[in-house]
Design a protein around this nucleic acid. Structure first.
Lengths: 173, 173
DNA sequence: TATTGTTATACTCTATAACTATA
DNA sequence: TATAGTTATAGAGTATAACAATA
């Protein structure tokens, strides 16, 4: 059947194919989400992860890292704060701002989550070579950075070397 | 479990990092979704794409390819059928089943969508090497296949080489 | 009785807009 | 007036469960 895409150049076909594959990542993410503790939605997990990696930060900074609207961040942060995983401290430099910090409870929570995610990935990707895993991770990181920079074309582009930046084997623009 | 003080081996850190990067793909997908025509949600785009790639199929098969629940597929298919993008034909071999087929209208719709997605990807990934694009696409395809096979461990595990496998350049288990 | 789909309901994540409080 | 954050509301996607029709 499919006898159409003879007109598309190879490069364009790769773009199109990539767009499609990106959409199908949802399946994987849902599988990961399914295994999370019931009081910890995926959004909370992502939030805690960023907070450990980059350390104390303001709402707006977290929003930028998450690539979502500030209002959404506010919700997620409230959820995590209600459960004692993070603190919202006043910013000494700006009365409007609030500094977010992981609590001890949040740290141990994050340890569990980290363990769970790692376990799941190992279960499913047990037969992948370490190199392929690293390559995929690296390319996705670059992809996110590329889109993030374009969306927030105001400037920043903070390199994630703070806490646990693996960033192994791949060409980086 | 043998718990060692140094715990996380490099491989484990890569697993954890990959899990994190996969979650951040949402940013990219939202950007892609933003550019879709207003009467065409991302789910419809995915549905039409699969229908062209694999040809006429039943609801259950489409559900399997999408990696979602049949009830969700039903909704999306109804949406697309209401707009004349696909037909739901009776299955001559099974009265309970319905065969889905792309209409001419759906084909041209899909051409637009394909063009849009390609354009967006090219805009953002213009400075990526063709090889990196292909590699990422390929690894994601493999990832989806791996998870899909594990999830559908009830029986099938239908190798996707059935119909129209693009399958470009990467090691495959 | 088992399977294919459909529909009703609920939950998560997100965006927009209106609002408060600081700057 | 502009910015940081909160809250209310709406829309998209998904899962579960109850249901209809056919095998």
């Amino acid at each position: 059947m499919s006898g159409e895409p003879e007109d598309a150049e190879p490069d364009l076909r790769h773009y199109r194919e990539l767009a499609r594959q990106l959409r199908s990542v949802g399946v994987v993410n849902r599988e990961l989400a399914r295994r999370l503790p019931h009081d910890c939605p995926p959004a909370s997990a992502g939030l805690l992860t960023l907070l450990r990696r980059h350390g104390e930060m303001r709402m707006s900074r977290l929003t930028e890292l998450l690539g979502i609207d500030l209002s959404v961040t506010s919700r997620h942060v409230a959820h995590a704060a209600d459960r004692g995983w993070i603190e919202r401290l006043p910013d000494p430099h700006d009365g409007r701002s609030r500094l977010l910090r992981l609590t001890h409870s949040g740290e141990s929570r994050l340890d569990e989550l980290s363990e769970l995610a790692t376990e799941t990935m190992r279960e499913f990707l047990g037969d992948w070579s370490a190199e392929d895993v690293a390559t995929l991770s690296s390319l996705l990181e670059r992809l996110g950075r590329t889109f993030g920079d374009c969306r927030a074309r105001g400037g920043h582009s903070p390199p994630p070397g703070t806490d646990a930046a693996p960033d192994p084997a791949t060409s980086r623009t």
